[in-house]
Design a binder for these strands. Structure first.
Length: 556
RNA sequence: GCGAGCGUAGUGUAGUGGUUAUCACCCCACGUUGCCAACGUGGGAACCCGGGUUCGAGUCCCGGCGCUCGCACCA
């Protein structure tokens, strides 16, 4: 699985030493699955997030949201997370040992993993297996041990249960009415959100790959499934993607060919695949170590109907870093069912539908008193009669009972209805990005520790879009005015919005370049004797080592 | 969660129950050096946490926490 563990160790050491990624709360012994982005990493994370936001806002019909991480129980119950994200636990009342209910019941059921909480409860009480710890047969009620972090919203008896969100998506679904209004009822549009998500993983592993608190960035793209989405793939006509379809082997082809061959089944999914490709390459992922893998039907999450992961090859093998899921109407429909609120958009038919209604309905004023409790059923039956029915007549009700309906009980209905459109539940394609995993691979792909002049030398070849430090300012020596000029330049750069500069006067110039290279500073500015005379500095490029002189005023 | 291995300066490491805890890189100051990890002098910095055994524990034992790997779990 691991490729070159020694390189991984060197890199992890560097990331820690230089303040990019380090274990959180380390002086207290650390905490599994929690990491700090340090003084360099914090800025890196921010720039990746900002690049991500800018990438999607550029589409023109995307809005940015920020929803709470603390989420009421009901929201995640409606979304399916309470049910799907749980392990069901029971506790031995004699020895207090907790066990997974489905594991205890393995010899009593073919697939206990698939049972609901109440089914597990019944089966547990019926079969009453012995405790693996103390052999007693005295189990507590089955409780959901959720992989979400529990919390209580509010104090004391007024507190109600909630969770830290396992994904940012639900807030965007529950905000759908506001989103639709903001877009003046026109689809398609998208909502994006970057933020923290939480999953109380049983066993966090592989450093940044599986975390308990993680940075995610999700886009929910809402569209009308009755319309072609008309995505323009011309910009990607030359881009060959590596695709691993659910059937067959990995292939390389353009997104248009994949659509034509029905390997990618949905245009909007395809569109976000290529957009995702562009984003990942922009932040520095090596396109040769990027592929898209289609989910098998049985590994699809509970909400998805087609799903492609962007997988990136790094020190831990191929790791899924982005999931692009066609979620259909699942989420909006779930929240609709749970709340009774309308989460729909209106569409007009190209041709209004004209419906001729010719038949009968009940005359409530007479039939109501006549049939009393049966009136509802009578109405239903009368409205199903043909237009040429005559009265009085015997009508068979839903429950099998027959009643006689007189002409005074009914009214003729004849009208023409024009239906110009309908309310429908939009469909959603969701690209969900694991920012930490992406940052890990950005670092992994940028980390270059091959030799320079025979000695080990480390360069972080980060893209300009995400490099955490833009400039290092070096006075050749801190004398003859060079130190003062360099400090002035450093302050001027630092005061510029979006620019981070480091001042470094310690050690030889070569050592300072090396320090800058290690954290991926794209350009170093050196102040020398000539600078004091004519206000020019040398700009040294990280990747080529080339230098040229630039006037200070032309730098920003 | 189970099993195995591991935990020493910022990083990588040495360390036979008794050392001022080794070495290198590193970091800081001063000097020197006039553009790619130079040099000199001086300085800085560590035994994961808590118990136990012992006259004495970095070293042995127990527990916790953390890391790595395998199994399990997991989008």
């Amino acid at each position: 699985m691991q490729q070159d563990p020694e390189r991984l160790e060197r890199m992890s050491g560097m990331l820690k030493r230089r303040g990019i990624i380090l274990p959180a709360f380390e002086i207290h012994g650390g905490a599994k699955g929690l990491y700090d982005f340090g003084p360099v990493g914090g800025r890196l994370r921010n720039r990746v997030n900002q690049t991500w936001i800018d990438h999607w806002l550029a589409l023109g019909n995307i809005v940015e949201l920020s929803c709470p991480t603390v989420t009421p129980y009901a929201v995640l119950e409606a979304s399916g997370h309470v049910g799907e994200f749980s392990d069901f636990m029971t506790v031995c009342t004699k020895c207090e040992e907790a066990s997974r209910a489905d594991t205890l019941l393995e010899s009593f059921h073919a697939n206990p993993d698939a049972l609901s909480q109440s089914e597990l409860q019944h089966l547990l009480f019926d079969s009453n297996p012995p405790c693996p710890n103390c052999n007693e047969q005295a189990w507590s009620e089955v409780t959901a041990q959720n992989l979400m972090f529990n919390t209580t919203i509010g104090a004391g008896s007024s507190g109600r249960p909630g969770f830290l969100r396992p994904e940012t998506a639900q807030g965007m679904f529950t905000s759908f009415p506001a989103l639709l209004r903001h877009n003046r009822d026109r689809l398609p549009f998208g909502a994006i959100q970057v933020g923290k998500g939480y999953r109380n993983e049983i066993s966090p592993r592989q450093g940044m790959i599986r975390l308990r608190e993680f940075n995610m960035a999700e886009l929910e793209y809402f569209f009308n499934p009755h319309e072609d989405q008309q995505h323009d793939f011309d910009s990607w006509s030359e881009v060959e993607l590596s695709l691993v379809p659910d059937e067959g082997d990995e292939t390389r082809m353009t997104i248009q060919s994949a659509l034509d061959a029905s390997i990618v089944r949905h245009e909007t999914v395809a569109y976000f695949m290529v957009q995702t490709y562009d984003f990942l390459v922009k932040v520095g992922i090596d396109p040769k170590r990027l592929r898209f893998r289609q989910h098998e039907a049985d590994e699809m999450a509970h909400y998805a109907s087609d799903c492609w992961d962007a997988e990136i090859l790094g020190s831990y093998g191929w790791i899924e870093c982005v999931g692009i899921a066609h979620r259909g109407c699942f989420d909006l429909e779930s929240h609709e069912k749970a709340t009774g609120k309308t989460l729909r958009a209106r569409r007009e038919f190209s041709e209004p539908k004209v419906i001729e209604i010719d038949g009968w309905t009940m005359n409530g004023a007479t039939a109501g008193p006549a049939f009393r409790a049966l009136a509802g059923a009578v109405k239903q039956s009368v409205e199903s009669l043909a237009a040429d029915a005559t009265f009085p007549c015997m009508v068979t009700l839903e429950n099998g009972e027959k009643v006689e309906v007189l002409s005074e009980h009914v009214k003729r209905v004849q009208r023409t209805e024009t239906i110009s459109g309908e309310w429908y539940i939009p469909h959603v394609v969701e690209p969900a990005f694991g920012i930490d995993r992406i940052i890990w691979h950005v670092l992994d792909h940028a980390y270059d520790d091959t030799a320079k002049d025979g000695d080990a030398y480390t360069v972080l070849r980060l893209s300009d879009d995400v490099a955490p430090v833009n400039y290092c300012v070096f006075p050749l020596f801190e004398k003859e005015g060079m130190g003062e000029l360099a400090r002035t330049l450093h302050k001027k750069l630092s005061a510029t919005s979006g620019v981070v500069s480091i001042y470094d006067s310690s050690g030889s110039i070569g050592r300072r370049y090396a320090r800058a290279d290690e954290i991926g500073v794209p350009r170093c500015l050196t102040v020398d004797h000539q600078s004091v005379k004519d206000q020019t500095v040398t700009v040294r490029d990280r990747d080529t080592g080339e230098q040229h002189r630039v006037h200070i005023d032309d730098l920003i």
